[in-house]
Simulated scan of single mutants.
Amino acid sequence: MNAYFANKVVLVTGASRGIGRAVALAFAGEGARLVLAARSADRLAQVENEVRDLGSEVLSVPTDVTSHDAVAALVDAATDRFGRIDVLVNNAGIGKVGGVEAAEFADDVRQTLRASLFGMIDVTQRALPVLRQQGSGTIVNMSSVMGRKAFSRFGSYAIVMHAVSAFSDSLRQEVAGGGIRVVAIHPALTATDLLKEAEEAEMPPPFRHMTPLSSEEVARAVVAAVRRGKRRVVLPRTANMLLLGEALSPRVGDLIATALTMRPVARVLGMSRGKTYHETILSQPSV
């Protein structure tokens, strides 16, 4: 156990599964006290038991982050129980796959904005006065590699992840000097059920043969980022080549994205090491 997180209070949204669950368990393993938020009370109760089994104090609050009243109740419950919030992990969100010309594309953008951006903003605005009063704290915003480079057929998600990146960059500068840190996490494809309902043929082309990150890999990166005071983390590191290419020129970024549709290229970059996303999801036990 690392004494850095002993008795620190960590609030995680979207904590009932995937990355949120893994983040909660990772911080619990470091001795933190957890506040868990998600829509599913049943799944949240399961994670609460897992956190408690690790010896950590835990409070679970069923919460829909798209509800302002529910968000207010969440933060109030956290401060009533623990008196503070040391780390806020904004993880709740959804993702949709589909081309720009699809009839439902605009609705997909609206739904994703509501859950993945405006929910994040609401939780952050409610928690910020607590962090400011303490004069300390870290806000972790879960974005994506697509928060810096969009892929075809994932435009609605990329639009929102770009917005999360911009929100994080702006917020980081606004709270500078007040003892509050902001870190944006940009994972590549991860083995969560975010895209479980999408057919393999509907996936963005580079994703169809990629080996996804595990939720535990992302969780470890979140814990390390908070401990080290990082501002931005990209996973895996080789994905920085794509983002650097995009920063240099959209043409270069597009060429790299196209190259990633070829399995040998993805394999050389360490992004196609074994099972694909759908193979991984199908092989996972239900949690």
Rank of each mutant, 00 (worst) to 15 (best):
S60A: 15
V100H: 03
T79K: 12
Q133D: 13
R84Y: 01
D122K: 04
R33H: 11
F82W: 07
L113R: 08
N90C: 08
A45I: 09
A77Y: 00
A115H: 04
G137M: 04
A73L: 06
A106C: 14
N49S: 11
S136R: 14
T138P: 04
L34Y: 00
R52H: 07
V71C: 01
A106M: 15
P129H: 02
R110M: 12
E104G: 05
S67Q: 11
A70P: 11
V35L: 05
G95R: 02
L44M: 05
F118L: 14
V97F: 03
H68G: 12
L117T: 02
I94S: 11
H68Q: 14
Q133C: 13
V123D: 00
L88P: 04
S67G: 13
T79D: 10
G93P: 00
A73Y: 03
A73D: 11
A32W: 06
D64V: 03
V97Q: 03
T112P: 07
V51M: 04
R52D: 05
G98Q: 06
D42T: 15
E48W: 12
A115I: 04
L88W: 04
E104C: 04
V61P: 02
V89L: 00
G95E: 02
L88A: 07
D86K: 03
R84D: 01
N90E: 08
L36T: 07
V71S: 00
T138I: 09
A73K: 07
V35P: 04
I121W: 06
E57V: 13
F105V: 10
Q134C: 05
E50D: 14
A32D: 02
Q125L: 12
R132G: 07
S60I: 13
G99H: 13
E101S: 14
G135E: 07
D64I: 00
G83I: 00
L113E: 10
T124F: 00
T79Y: 14
D53P: 07
A73R: 09
R43W: 10
L113P: 09
V35Q: 07
G119E: 06
E104Q: 14
Q46Y: 10
D76P: 11
R114K: 12
G135Q: 04
A103E: 12
T124A: 02
E57Y: 09
A78S: 08
D42W: 08
N90D: 12
Q125G: 04
V75F: 01
H68I: 12
A72E: 14
D122F: 02
V35K: 02
S67H: 12
Q46M: 10
F105W: 15
F118Q: 08
A72Q: 15
N91P: 09
L74C: 05
A106R: 15
S136W: 05
A115E: 06
D64R: 00
G137T: 02
T112E: 08
N49R: 12
D76K: 15
I94C: 13
R52A: 15
A32M: 05
V47G: 01
G83N: 00
A106D: 15
G31N: 02
R81G: 10
Q133S: 13
M120L: 15
E50V: 03
R33N: 11
R110P: 09
E48P: 09
A45H: 10
F82T: 09
V87T: 01
A102Y: 10
L88I: 03
T79L: 12
T63L: 01
F82I: 09
V100F: 13
